[in-house]
Nucleic acid binder design. Structure first.
Lengths: 359, 359
DNA sequence: TTGAAAGCGATACCAT
DNA sequence: ATGGTATCGCTTTCAA
């Protein structure tokens, strides 16, 4: 921790000139009014005589009074806070968060973000937080452990599942159809003439990864191809695993001419491996990703992928949670559309390069 | 909003089986004890007779009682919440957030994230939130408007500045030395033999961008070069601006042989433009970025850049805020080291390509 | 070792 | 139009 900066050098000192904030009582005393009147000036100004309203507002300004939200929240039995719980702090979930936050602002909520790293205990922790009234509701962008929710003695909190349904819980949901999107992605490869198509999958237990794999297999089967003709690696949604999975595929004979990666991270990793092997992406081997993260369009070559409306997903989820909290009638299951985005990592199948030399 | 999914189709229904949670009073009644005892069972279990403690804990479990945090917080005058305020929701700040969150967890806090889009009003809004006791403190990863803080009638909240000092406010700070890091970056280019070095800067008003520019100019001046020999575009920390700024530089004669971009986003944009012009990065033109975001190592070619310890910055900031909140003695200004990471976008200056044909 | 009660700082009901 | 006061659910003296 070197302090080589040219500016002021660190010096140990004490802190905090604690002038504590004015309370409603102090404002009331200042004006010889009751606390009720002060409260009303803020909440129902129309109930006050014009003159007093002005006086109260002036005093509030003068004393720098700001209502204590803890007290207000306790009284009103709401925190105006909601949780969004994601599996990990990745740019992908940041997009979802952005949408949630935007809607939350419109609805008068603030957002706490929690990440679980897919640990069921951590999921439970966040549910407990709303049981403890730290927040009014929760948006789960994660494959919540059904058990955590099923815990009978715990009241089910106001909750919305985003991105993915949650096992047999029949929760309000805003999601995409991963199965269908994977089907579309695979068909894109098929339509390019590829027949030796492999899949590098996500975490074997993540529902989202499972549905993508199913869509992949469904498309191959529909085309009369054997979905199990090639190795089918499955692992984390990371570039590291993408590299590893692709290596496995390259070592296999016959080598695939096209790969559907379960997300963009994996796709990028796969491409790194392909490049390293001296092969050309989009020519020797086609790769399609999933998510359309920012890196997809910036990458070289730009990545063909499935666009997921991440921000919209977050936005809609929060609107729905708001509706749930207001006890409004909602559409329980909303499915947002995905789009195939064709860029440069996929191209027509070529006959010449279907197999590799080593075998 | 098509619902083409194979699963359950959306159907409008009502919600919320509102079983409201048990209160401390109910637990007390259940056992014929006073609420004080229940409270103590959770907070100071050692004060209870062994037998009653067991009975109370059992009842708490049985009733699924969870203390209402709004009530507890009001009583204790703390929310155990802190704010981290960033200029924008980018992957860069997500890293900082990750560090904050980790430390917060260790210290028993939860984190609210706010973004200002560099709007002083929004900065003030978050300061007001802690004045309203929505949160106990605030970490500013943003060039807070000095005015917002200076507002005299508003008590200065417990606050830590991260990444960058804030104008003449003398706040507790955890930062890096942008000036020095920019100096190092420029020297790297200089040591490669470059003499026509340009800078594509960040937002002209962002202190962080200003300090980087100053470091750049200082290095050139120290090498006896004219820092103002080339255009010096300045704009947002985005790839879009990087592309634009680089175009400006390419249109200039003589064209620079090396560019120091104010951050990785700008660097990536610049490289896109360079590629599009048919030039080779690291050969015809060298580019160095700043931040070492994830994309830097994934990019093709991998980006030479300045590594900023983002997560550590967040982590240390939260630890410091915690110390401030506990009224402990702190080192006011901590500077974390940056590192030059040499990858493939910088290379030796070549004589041959110093100027472009169009002029 | 336990209980009674004050109080945290608001809001809103019921009076006047 | 304004005031008095119960209340939200908890923690913590102070007494017993």
């Amino acid at each position: 921790m070197p302090a080589r900066g040219p500016q002021r050098l660190g010096c140990a000192i004490k802190n905090r000139q604690q002038t504590k904030p004015a309370t409603i009582k102090e404002v009331a005393k200042e004006l010889g009014l009751s606390v009720a009147t002060i409260s009303r000036a803020l909440i129902h100004p129309e109930l006050l005589k014009n003159d007093t309203r002005v006086r109260v507002l002036a005093a509030i300004e003068r004393l720098g009074y700001q209502p204590n939200l803890m007290a207000r929240d306790l009284r009103l039995r709401e925190s105006r806070l909601i949780f969004v719980v994601v599996p990990s702090l990745s740019p992908f979930f940041l997009e979802v968060f952005r949408g949630v936050e935007r809607a939350a602002r419109e609805c008068g909520y603030m957002v706490l973000m929690g990440h679980t790293e897919r640990d069921p205990d951590r999921e439970k922790l966040f549910l407990d937080q709303v049981a403890s009234r730290r927040a009014d509701g929760i948006i789960l962008v994660t494959s919540a452990d059904a058990c955590a929710l099923a815990d009978s003695k715990r009241r089910i909190p106001p909750i919305v599942a985003a991105l993915e349904t949650i096992d047999n819980q029949d929760l309000p949901t805003v999601r995409v159809d991963h199965n269908q999107a994977a089907f579309d992605a695979t068909n894109h490869l098929l339509s390019l003439g590829h027949t030796k198509i492999a899949h590098i999958g996500g975490p074997p237990l993540a529902p989202m990864a499972i549905h993508r794999r199913q869509g992949f297999e469904r498309a191959l089967a529909a085309a009369g191809l054997d979905p199990f003709g090639l190795p089918c690696p499955a692992g984390n949604f990371t570039t590291a695993f993408g590299e590893e999975g692709m290596q496995l595929l390259l070592d296999h004979s016959p080598r695939p001419t096209a790969v559907f990666a379960a997300n963009d991270e994996i796709a990028v990793g796969a491409i790194q491996t392909i490049k390293r092997a001296g092969l050309t992406v989009g020519k020797d081997i086609s790769v399609i990703g999933y998510d359309d993260q920012r890196i997809a369009s910036l990458y070289d070559p730009p990545l063909t992928t499935i666009r997921v409306p991440t921000e919209e997903l977050g936005y809609q989820s929060m609107l729905k949670l708001n509706a749930v909290l207001k006890d409004e009638v909602i559409i329980r299951d909303v499915v947002l559309p995905t789009t195939l985005v064709v860029r440069s990592t996929t191209g027509p199948a070529t006959q010449s390069l279907g197999s590799n030399r080593e075998h």
